Simulated assay, not measured.
Amino acid sequence: MAQSKKKDSAPPTVQYFAAVLRLLRERSGLTQDELGALMNYTGSAVSAVETCAKPPTDEFIDAAEKALDAGGLLRSAIKYLRLERYPAHFQGLAQLEQEALSLSSYCTHLIHGLLQTEEYTTALFDYAFPPLDREEVTKLVAARMDRKALFDRKPAAVVNVILEEAALRRHIGGPEVMRAQYAHLTECTARPNVVVQVMPMSQAGHAGLPGPMTLIETPEETPVAYLEGHGQSILLSKPEEVGVLARRYAMIRSQALRPEESVRFIEKLMGEL
């Protein structure tokens, strides 16, 4: 009964993968233990995936693909299974992020997810309300770290991030976590495809006061805008709506510190800890 409830509550893509895996295994005349042995996994690990007790990892999928000679059928699910690691409201952006030509974000309260260290992200989820259990925190942290693949893929995405000074001064996780986070930010700016700027508090009035935003350029060179808050999100694609936000973002960039000034600002904050 418990296994049935777990299976029914699993995301649809996880359920579908479990069904296909079981079908291919049975057509090959293998038990769960036999398939596990071919994959260098235990039979219990295979059972956990087939009953949706645990979602399959990329490594598990690759091993099953090879062991069952699935012709790409199992591996093709990786992209869609990755999306289901994210909260429902974020899946639309996560899908766009994977193939984006460019991503431009203005962040008001927190450091952008793509630029976070694992420790900073963990501390954020530890602060969540209602509270999350440790298994859920671990899953969400891993999913956020996986997003960083867009930095190194070919072609790599161009990433522009503007951070409010308040987001940098909020000591998530304590001084040691923030010291490492500041250092990571400066390392990110050394990438040729990453630009980080700081909006100082001394810039009292600026175009970003209405709130955070993200602009994405898709492979079709179509601009899309993403707005998020309190577990809710909006994806905008109407040219007139995206155009207003794009012009606003351009003004925000012009009002923020220049990239080299921003690096010095972050280094100054690191020295204050």
Rank of each mutant, 00 (worst) to 15 (best):
M1A: 11
K6F: 05
S9A: 14
A10I: 01
T13V: 15
F17I: 08
F17D: 08
L23Q: 10
E26L: 14
L30Y: 04
D33W: 08
E34I: 02
Y41I: 00
T42S: 15
S44I: 07
S44E: 13
V49K: 04
E50G: 03
P55Y: 05
T57N: 04
E59L: 15
D62F: 03
A63S: 14
K66Q: 14
A70C: 10
R75H: 11
Y80K: 11
A88Q: 10
H89N: 05
L96H: 01
S102K: 08
C107A: 08
H112E: 15
G113F: 03
G113T: 08
Q116T: 02
T117L: 09
E119G: 02
E119N: 05
A123V: 07
F125T: 01
D126I: 12
F129V: 15
F129N: 14
P131H: 06
P131E: 11
L140W: 02
A143P: 01
R147Y: 00
D152V: 04
K154L: 14
V158N: 12
V159K: 08
N160Q: 14
V161W: 08
E165C: 07
H171A: 13
I172G: 07
G173Y: 02
G173T: 05
G174A: 00
P175R: 00
M178I: 10
Y182H: 01
H184R: 15
H184Q: 15
L185F: 12
T189I: 01
V195T: 15
V196A: 02
Q197I: 09
M199K: 09
M199C: 06
M199F: 03
P200K: 15
M201P: 01
M201E: 13
A204M: 13
G205F: 11
H206F: 09
G208D: 09
G208P: 11
L209H: 08
E217L: 14
E217S: 10
P219M: 10
P223K: 10
V224S: 12
Y226S: 03
L227K: 09
E228F: 00
H230T: 03
L236Y: 00
Y249H: 09
A256R: 06
P259A: 04
S262F: 10
R264K: 15
M270V: 09
E272F: 07
